[in-house]
Design a protein around this nucleic acid. Structure first.
Length: 334
RNA sequence: GGACGGGUGGGUGAGUGGCUAAAACCAGCAGACUGUAAAUCUGCCGCUCCUUGCGGGCUACGGAGGUUCGAAUCCUCCCCCGUCCA
């Protein structure tokens, strides 16, 4: 047992907070290709749940195969939420995700269904569960100015600007980390307060849910192997056609989802710049690096019950079911 | 058979006598990350020892010898690869 029990509300708590008590929420974390989708559907079937994707890429309409969006068949009749929310030109963010996810959670609560999150994007899970600081959303105009400022001068220049605005953030953020520099400066200029100050003020965590977190941790070599296979499968399923359709449909090359792993590589192949073999190799490699970053992030995630294999491995799935059943029972008996 | 070109650390590849455990890039590993996060950034990356230091030892540039205070770098022979000529 790698998780500590969740705090059980005492009568005193209940009297202070009238209304329905905390409700369980299952989150399956793990790197790409670890079998989260399959496990999510299985748990949903078993426990009367619905799946919520927690993935920054699956929210984009039209980007299906490359983002490993579950097919209708894979969904097995289980409702899936937080998929296909926006068009490619839209810059979807963690803040936006939180708002949408909370709405879905409330809906499931009303209908007494168990939410099951399949989490590929650690930041989004954190934004949902722990909240984000009270910082403003991105401002496209301001960012455009900061971007051109970075181009005109240098990233070092932006870093010096940040030093003046927010010494602490400047120490934390590398002088070559463009997106983070820009966000920190953006927040300072928008609010007149420093990002560090805003962070210190704290976050507002999600209330009324107690998370049951399961982590999938297949052996590294097996995971890398499966990633390679999956890239081929995706191509066999028509990923190239998908990319072709997006291009012909007028989706701009510089939109956010076109920079997801695979899309730019396949676009290059369609334009004749690289062979399919080279593109495939590059995609597998990028996916492996991505999986590694996810693993690094999830290692720090608190209170995760780790299982040493793929989510579609029957033994692992059975262990997950057992764990969730135990947690649900413990929660129900209070 | 002859003429060239080449064999460098997991890969590509720089390096022509000391500043070289050997550039750079890739792969790999580890880490960071509060509104672009499938993004972005950072560190490590021959082995080993300790008093963890711009520290010591060992091994390393196809192989074996040699020249030299000192060689991945020069010489000799051998092996292998590529291109061309027969």
């Amino acid at each position: 047992m790698s998780t500590a029990p969740h705090p059980i509300p005492t009568p005193a708590d209940d009297s202070r907070k009238p209304g329905p008590g905390p409700v369980p929420l299952v989150a399956i974390v793990g790197p790409t290709a670890s079998g989260k989708t399959s496990l999510g559907v299985r748990l949903a079937r078993k426990f009367g749940g619905e799946v919520l994707a927690c993935d920054s890429t699956q929210v984009y309409r039209g980007f299906d195969i490359g983002t490993a969006k579950p097919t209708l068949e894979e969904r097995g009749g289980i409702p899936h939420h937080l998929i296909d929310l926006v068009d490619p030109a839209f810059a979807f963010t963690a803040g936006e995700y939180r708002v949408r996810a909370v709405a879905v959670l409330e809906d499931l609560r009303r209908r007494a269904r168990l939410p099951i999150l399949t989490v590929g994007t650690g930041l989004y899970l954190r934004a949902l569960l722990e909240g984000l600081a009270d910082a403003p959303a991105r401002s496209e105009e301001l960012r455009a100015r900061l971007e051109s400022c970075a181009d005109a001068h240098s990233l070092q220049y932006l870093h010096r600007v940040l030093q003046r605005l927010d010494r602490e953030a400047a120490l934390r953020i590398g002088s070559r980390d463009r997106p983070k520099l820009i966000r920190a400066i953006e927040v300072c200029l928008l609010t007149g307060r420093s990002l560090s100050e805003i962070h210190q003020a704290g976050r507002t965590p999600l209330e009324g849910y107690h998370p049951i977190k399961i982590g999938l941790q297949p052996p590294r070599a097996a995971l890398y192997d499966r990633i390679g296979q999956r890239v081929h499968t995706m191509i066999r399923r028509g990923w190239l056609n998908e990319v072709n359709g997006l291009i012909r449909g007028g989706v701009e090359q510089n939109t956010k989802p076109f920079n997801f792993i695979g899309y730019s590589e396949l676009r290059a192949h369609l334009e004749g710049t690289v062979t399919l073999a080279a593109a495939t190799k590059a995609i597998s490699q990028a996916t492996r690096r991505y999986a590694k970053r996810q693993i690094t992030w999830f290692r720090k995630e608190p209170l995760v019950h780790w299982l040493p294999g793929f989510g579609d491995d029957p033994a692992i799935a059975a262990a997950a079911e057992q764990f969730v059943a135990g947690k649900l029972q413990a929660g129900a008996s209070t």
